[in-house]
Simulated scan of single mutants.
Amino acid sequence: MNKNRQLKELKVAEIKEKLEKAQSVVLASYQGLTVEEDTILRKSLREAGVEYKVYKNSLVILAAKELGMDSIEEYLQGPVSIALGYEDATAPARVLFDFAKSHKKLELKAGIVDSVIYNKEQVEKLATIPSKEVLIAKLLGSFKAPLSKIACVLNAIKEKKETESAE
């Protein structure tokens, strides 16, 4: 086996491992972005805990086929970048979508969440879902509100009884 083939097989194995490990994957066309814009995008993705890579489409297709995601091939045309979210499933879509609003050269193509492939419109909907931390904060807030109301009612009852007993 020649060295080039070995390198390609290693790269396919690496891509396959990343696709398996990621909670979500977003494919985007980045053609036309300047180096400065790409640097800003990469920084935003890094801060959100998202890995951002550019691989040869043919190698990604091979890795995806090994994972049973054959239909991803239609989205791997031309220069395509891959954003991999390992902790927050919405982070790659959210960061890329927000960046694409002000940089028209970046175009979302597709996404993968739990081995299910989503088209551009579905990825854009995914981008509008708040992060896990925000959802948890909202949930805790919804728990806290009724509890604080109960505490106020109980306190009012206590104060009323104290004033009645003082009379």
Rank of each mutant, 00 (worst) to 15 (best):
K3D: 12
Q6H: 11
Q6N: 10
L7Q: 14
E9T: 08
E9P: 02
L10R: 15
K11C: 09
E14Y: 11
E14P: 03
K18T: 07
K18L: 14
K18I: 08
K18Q: 12
L19K: 06
A22T: 07
Q23K: 15
S24H: 05
V25D: 02
V26M: 06
Y30G: 00
T34I: 09
E37K: 14
K43A: 10
S44P: 00
S44T: 01
E47D: 15
A48C: 04
G49R: 09
V50K: 00
V54Q: 03
K56S: 07
L59D: 09
K65L: 08
K65M: 09
K65D: 11
E66Y: 07
M69C: 11
M69D: 08
D70H: 14
S71L: 06
S71R: 12
L76N: 08
G78D: 09
I82R: 04
G85I: 02
D88T: 06
A89H: 05
A91H: 01
L96K: 09
K101N: 12
K105W: 02
E107D: 07
L108Y: 04
L108I: 14
I112T: 11
N119W: 04
L126G: 04
A127F: 10
P130G: 08
P130T: 07
P130L: 08
S131D: 11
K138P: 00
G141C: 04
S142G: 03
F143S: 03
A145E: 13
S148N: 11
S148H: 06
I150A: 07
A151T: 01
C152L: 13
K158I: 03
K158Q: 11
K160Y: 14
K161F: 08
E162S: 14
T163W: 10
E164V: 14
A166T: 06
